[in-house]
Design a binder for these strands. Structure first.
Lengths: 175, 175
DNA sequence: CTAAAACTTTATTACGTCAAAATATAGGAT
DNA sequence: ATCCTATATTTTGACGTAATAAAGTTTTAG
């Protein structure tokens, strides 16, 4: 009996990033070859992570962007925030917030309400159905994605530390 | 004299990722808090990297996706590849390749040509203007982005090693 | 009171994915 | 060899996300 092994198309016989780095070196770009490999590796890992997350969220009719917004709201005392504050905290463009809130409102997971004193602002307020779905989604992501990183705990902590250094170096947060 | 310090809106008084991890722990999600922080950090670093890259590429009227395609073609012997092979090597969806090739063709950086023997395939072939722009773009990215990672070389190598482990654990390449 | 700033929205553009369709090739059975 | 079915490849259309530019409303500061 012959064993048939299914190999996904995207799996190739070598590491494309290592290969690219070899070419960079070959051309004498030795100031940049490591940085190129780092940036490319991070992009690729992110792509893999996001694909896993989105596929787990799809049955709930949520995307990661909308999940993050619901998660953020569920952590606030009042369950509501000004749109501008959402954009700040999630590091996304104001128009993206408007867009996400539009969709979540259509799903009846949130509603827009007026700010008590500043009429320039609009608040987004999480609704019971939103709280319910975000709890379910978090359980699923914790179990199916976040609990299985492929690294042991101490290696993971080491990686987290390096990534935090990188973000600090880019001024991602005050330190 | 009072010194005025301009603080970008997105910079907050703490690290939002660390804060999120604290909340995760508070809720007893101790299997997942590290993974959540890792996935989120990677996403954020990628976002920072891509923003830098795209802003450097914008004056050339290139996006990173199109730059990568040109770069790949410029490294091949004949300067051409089947679309399907491009998708494989760059790990992107076939429709994304079609889309990118459409735009690059409109810019006269590449052209589509027929495969000699297999008429199902379409080749994408880099044109002289494409070779020229990709050389310029590579110089700029090497200098402005890849040469300044914010980490010293040995720390960078360490980070690269961890990222490669992560990709390996996800079956990103055969090893 | 007026000008500047803050906040949100609309319209446009770009990019990526999925689902499905269209075309071409390959392999096995007759 | 021919036919039939499965596979491979590319494209089209629909949708979600995100960014930019511009406009509208409200507040703040001088």
């Amino acid at each position: 009996m012959v064993q048939v092994i299914q190999v996904p198309n995207h799996v190739d016989n070598f590491d494309p990033i290592l290969e690219a780095r070899r070419i960079w070196r070959e051309r004498g770009w030795t100031e940049a070859d490591l940085g190129m490999a780092l940036v490319t590796s991070i992009a690729r890992v992110d792509q893999i992570n996001m694909k896993k997350i989105e596929s787990n969220l799809r049955p709930l009719k949520l995307t990661f962007a909308r999940f993050e917004l619901l998660r953020l709201l569920s952590f606030t005392r009042k369950g509501s925030l000004p749109l501008s504050r959402v954009g700040n905290l999630l590091q996304v463009h104001p128009t993206s917030v408007t867009n996400a809130v539009d969709r979540l409102e259509a799903q009846h997971f949130v509603e827009r309400t007026a700010h008590a004193t500043d009429r320039r602002m609009t608040l987004v307020n999480i609704l019971p159905a939103g709280r319910e779905i975000v709890e379910t989604a978090t359980e699923i992501l914790n179990r199916e994605v976040f609990a299985n990183t492929g690294l042991d705990a101490s290696t993971g902590e080491q990686l987290l530390h390096l990534l935090t250094s990188l973000r600090a170096a880019s001024g991602d947060f005050s330190h």
